[in-house]
Design a protein around this nucleic acid. Structure first.
Lengths: 205, 205, 205, 205
DNA sequence: CATGAATGAGGCTTCATTCAT
DNA sequence: TATGAATGAAGCCTCATTCAT
């Protein structure tokens, strides 16, 4: 009933570990980050780390979920102040634009690296799916809202549109992973925004 | 198996090695494929392999380039029979649609895995850039053609549009890397096609 | 065998590894000694070894430095009881004479092998230079002392003389690396001693 | 009775291979030179090379012997014109002085590298001994001549003195293998010459 | 609970030598 | 004879995970 240390302590430690690990994964990618990197940054022992997480994988999954939940929560808050569906989409593109290419690259590495890893380990796919679903739902809700309010076309498939939205954005990130300059990146982001909004808004074919 | 062989022999062996390695890379990804995997599959010795390629990296690069060149050549041929720029874009989406999700996943793994690896090895970035440039140029040419013929908007930035095209497509592939069903995939591909064509064709803003 | 051990434990283990490696290097030379040889001899794993030393090279360098420091310290102590510079030189030749040819050969192998290796790896040259400097300085000090006290000629270049001293000695070791009998070796050592002392003592030309 | 190709041809080819291999060994040392290096330089095949020499070792031994014979022959010729034993020693030191440090280093690497290698392979020791004996005899003859003519002390042990001569010289080379500047090298060479001549010439103790 | 030394399989690459052509 | 592709045993080093303290 009463563990040696309080649950709160454990929870905080968990979070602290996740934060430290996040920095490492973001800096070097999942595969290239060693457990040694993580514990060195945190100033804890490997044993301690393995007391909280069963494996490097598990750390990644929990961390990704936490991040995703944060992002979803943050977006929900922001969205409250935005009247329309199109505004929300624009807001998202603004966010993308604000992120530097360097930042973007780090996140892309962080995610892609694990996706590749997961794609060869069936156990991880489900975890990752749940993770991605959250991102999809945020967008899907916007799409449905837009269709309801008439901002977006009436024949819009909200789910497909959500996929499409992220594909567009992640594909761009992907193409700028290894090179490309900031200016070019933002130009395409502008084009993408126009393209997406036009597609969403356009009258049914 | 023997020396002073014809150039043909060597070329064929090279190709055979590349084919074998391709299977491995596609199956397990670049990082997870070991040289041992490749030589076991081919039934040759490691020394033999290193007689043809200086490193695992070089095998990947040459293989990717060969594949890219083939694709570019094949597209060029196909494009000869297609009158307009929009037709060419449509043809490309048709090709994407014909590819099974399984196939797609293999290729995504093949590419992404190496990109992640390359992103941490500056020497490789240049190689990869050259590789990607080929794909970009194929599309850029179409964009320029479309603008010239008036099929596409007059203010179209061919280079950005090429980036955008591939981003859209690769982003989709990315999102279906770990899951998703064939039907959904094709539905989104249809939407994408519409979205892209509408964007390209629309009058200047 | 276990963690959070005392610094003493680690220091002892370090020393133990160095001792084991020393045996191997002395027995087979630097290049021919494999990491496998060392860990087998010590009964530890490769990982354990690499926890203490970053590379085979580093093991060698630290080992050589430790040995050199010991030798310098031992000589310093001995020299305290010796009144003159010539006495110190004589003492050194005595030490050389006491060393068996077998011993000598091992040490020559130990050093030469690494020198050859280092001569092709610029990074290592500096390390090795520092190492040799220590030996040179010990002798240089004697030369300066002798010049000051008038035991040695007044125009003696202490630095050159130090080089000369070691060259003479190491050259001899070199020539007995592959063959030669103990008696002959000692006879030449006697001659060398006379030759060197006469050179040092002789009046300016 | 009559081989396919003339003995002359074979002999010339042997010599050509040896010359090419010499360049390689001198440039990179024995261990670091690969058979591939040698055949590439010569423009012949490995099979051809192995038709003339059973191993890399054998090439080295024969090459070293040839070089030594050349050197001995060259010295013999030079010595004809030199009236005294001391002159001959002085001539040798002149030769040493004429050699650049770069040249010297190459030769030292060439020899040392193989000595280390040989010291672990008993079969090779004998070969190497014979090789060194030639060098020793050249000097021994001078020593004996000097003693006979009264130029050198009457109690001189010609064999020991020969050892001593080479030790002095090779030891110096050794110390300049990894570093040191030309000027310093020559200064010590001068000192050595004085030291050696004084030792040889001095009256019995 | 925390510690961190130890494990050890496994990764990539090299190269003297052989032998089918 | 000449050729050079092929061999394959080593070599050095990494790192997720465990477990005695």
């Amino acid at each position: 009933m009463s563990p040696k240390v309080s649950e709160t302590y454990k929870e905080e430690k968990r979070a602290a570990i996740l934060t430290g690990a996040l920095h490492c994964f973001v800096e070097k990618g999942f595969q290239a980050t060693t457990v040694e990197d993580i514990v060195r940054r945190l100033g804890i022992s490997k044993g301690a780390l393995y007391g909280y997480f069963a494996s490097k994988e598990e750390m990644y999954i929990q961390m990704a979920n936490a991040r995703m939940d944060d992002m979803v929560a943050s977006l929900s808050t922001q969205f409250k102040g935005l009247p329309g569906a199109a505004d929300k989409i624009r807001y998202l593109f603004d966010r993308f634009r604000k992120q530097s290419l360097l930042e973007l690259r780090k996140w892309v590495t962080f995610h892609l690296d694990f996706m590749i890893y997961a794609s060869r380990n069936p156990d991880l796919i489900e975890s990752h799916d749940r993770y991605m679903d959250k991102a999809l739902h945020v967008i899907q809700d916007i799409m449905e809202e837009g269709r309801r309010t008439g901002e977006f076309r009436s024949d819009l498939d909200a789910s497909s549109a959500a996929y499409l939205f992220w594909s567009v954005r992640d594909g761009l990130a992907l193409h700028f992973l290894l090179g490309g300059d900031e200016k070019n990146y933002r130009k395409i982001l502008d084009d993408m925004e126009k393209m997406v909004l036009r597609f969403l808004a356009s009258a049914p074919v």
